[in-house]
């Protein structure tokens, strides 16, 4: 398993990287999404641009009531940030189950999101948190909501000349509970189906409810059905909402789970995530 030949450039700064970006170039940071593709020759770039060591793409900092995470921050670094864990415990909880110890040491949050595996764990978390992604190119920068970023399997809003440089997390609403529930494919650890939920509560009533899925369809998505919980106490409605959120979705079919089972798992995951989130919000 040896990749095809390519040139390798370690970018010294962002503008260095922008210059090289284009159709026949690939960006590498941790490499844990890209290298397997290269080894199987499923990707055959002419040039590899290494942005993994750029200090301006690293780090976790507070911003307003929320936080900003450099795209080349490793999963390990996310786990080691006490501030991140305090504000977004869900990110820590989910990160602990991404890949494995070695993958978390090398893999980066931006790399994983830009790779856009339809069964990855982090995208639904970004969706319920209503994160935004900073995309930069030679021409300038723009911010794209996570909810408009994932376009399809391994496909995002990123243009060939753009880099995902920062993940921007808005301040979580007060009295919020978040949770993630998933069922792993036994070999890869990717989600057969997973659901992230965020619920905010005031005076015993739900004021905000977000639910997003991964692994279920060809791209992670936010389920509008969660809105039905707003203005209610939750409890009895949760099962209905979980079922409604999955109903009508064209579920993936593969050797590990057929659409019927996958949709069922998604429903269970949604119910469990919503229930836990609600419990944590109270």
């Amino acid at each position: 398993m040896i990749p095809t030949s390519f040139e390798y450039v370690r970018a010294k700064n962002l503008s260095d990287a922008f210059k090289l970006l284009g159709k026949h170039a690939k960006v590498i940071a941790g490499g844990h999404s890209l290298l397997p593709l290269l080894r199987f020759r499923l990707a055959q770039p002419d040039t590899l641009i290494d942005i993994g060591q750029l200090p301006q793409l690293k780090g976790i900092k507070k911003a307003g009531g929320g936080m900003k995470i450099g795209a080349a921050t490793t999963y390990r670094e996310l786990l080691e940030s006490k501030e991140l864990k305090a504000l977004y415990p869900l990110i820590a909880e989910v990160t602990e189950h991404i890949g494995d110890l070695q993958v978390r040491n090398a893999g980066t949050i931006g790399g994983g999101l830009a790779h856009a595996d339809p069964a990855a764990d982090m995208p639904p978390v970004m969706l319920v948190l209503d994160a935004a992604f900073l995309l930069q190119s030679k021409a300038g920068k723009r911010t794209v909501s996570a909810r408009k970023f994932f376009k399809g399997p391994f496909t995002t809003a990123l243009k060939p000349n753009e880099l995902l440089t920062e993940i921007q997390l808005p301040a979580p609403p007060k009295r919020t509970g978040m949770a993630y529930a998933s069922f792993e494919q036994a070999a890869s650890g990717y989600a057969l189906a997973g659901a992230a939920a965020l619920i905010a509560v005031a005076n015993g009533m739900i004021t905000r409810a977000e639910l997003a899925f991964t692994g279920l369809a060809d791209t992670p998505f936010l389920a509008p059905a969660a809105a039905k919980l707003v203005g209610t106490a939750g409890d009895e409605l949760i099962s209905q909402v979980a079922a409604a959120a999955v109903a009508g979705v064209e579920a993936n079919d593969d050797i590990h789970a057929n659409p019927v089972y996958r949709a069922h798992l998604a429903t269970v995951a949604a119910r469990r995530a919503l229930t836990t989130a609600l419990g944590r919000a109270r």
Binding site: Q185, A186, A187, S188, I255, H256
Partner: peptide, 23 residues
């Protein structure tokens, strides 16, 4: 509980890597 080599009807091994064959 989890190991099985699976072929499709064309004789292609669908569990061709450790991503799909569950050691």
């Amino acid at each position: 509980l989890q190991e099985m080599a699976v072929y499709d009807e064309d004789g292609q091994l669908l569990t061709g890597t450790m991503m799909d064959y569950a050691i």
